[in-house]
Design a protein around this nucleic acid. Structure first.
Lengths: 109, 109
DNA sequence: CATAAACAGCCTTTTTATAGGCTGTAACTC
DNA sequence: GAGTTACAGCCTATAAAAAGGCTGTTTATG
């Protein structure tokens, strides 16, 4: 099963089901997980039934499930060259390069 | 750097920075990503500056970045025994077992 | 410096999430 | 069947996120 083949709402639902399975694997109730994650019981219920939640709540829930490091793999740090890192740490942040030579819509204006 | 050593808000901020780096690695602007993900520009800005968003928005953004399958690793399907799977597929869903023998607060009643 | 793009920060309105409670039902124990 | 637990679904009020626009600053180019 690949997420790329699912719709957005299907991904959300699948995520909720996996969280439920993980919770049940740990033999915990929704109320217990909600208390440990410091979120309302409603948040767990809605998440597990595919209604979604905020990323903040997801982080709390992942931590309560002992899966906070799994978030690390969500967007792993891409290969950033030391030079680019230096620029990132510099004045501001690198903007998407291209500038004038990369205008999209109003190219002939 | 491990997420387990970070606070919830720090995890959120780190996630935002990684998404920004991924976006910049793909040489795209916030406005381009917002359009591709079908979210408001504000959502990208807030996310990248550590203000968070909904999981629905995160899914859209991950898909627009070509990272939708990374969500797959967030909560990988835990090892579910065939027997348990049968119960899951059965009438309802397995509830956290324990029942009366697992009461927490009023255990001496 | 002038121009243009990229972005942060702030604002208003609409939509959604959150907390908490309450009801009905399924599952388990006796 | 009675009692208990776990959960879905619905409800109200509050908080936060979303969309869209506007301003000022930074970055890059000329």
């Amino acid at each position: 099963m690949e997420f790329s083949s699912l719709s957005d709402s299907a991904v959300l639902a699948e995520l909720g089901e996996r969280i439920r399975r993980e919770r049940l694997n740990q033999n915990r109730t929704q109320a217990e997980l909600a208390a440990d994650a410091r979120v309302g019981l409603n948040v767990i219920k809605r998440l597990e039934t595919g209604d979604g939640c905020t990323v903040s709540s997801l982080i709390r829930i992942a931590r309560a499930l002992g899966k906070i490091d799994a978030l690390d793999t969500l967007f792993p740090e891409p290969g950033v060259s030391p030079l680019q890192l230096a620029r990132l740490a510099g004045r501001r942040r690198k903007q998407a390069s291209g500038g004038r030579g990369r205008r999209k819509g109003s190219g002939n204006g």
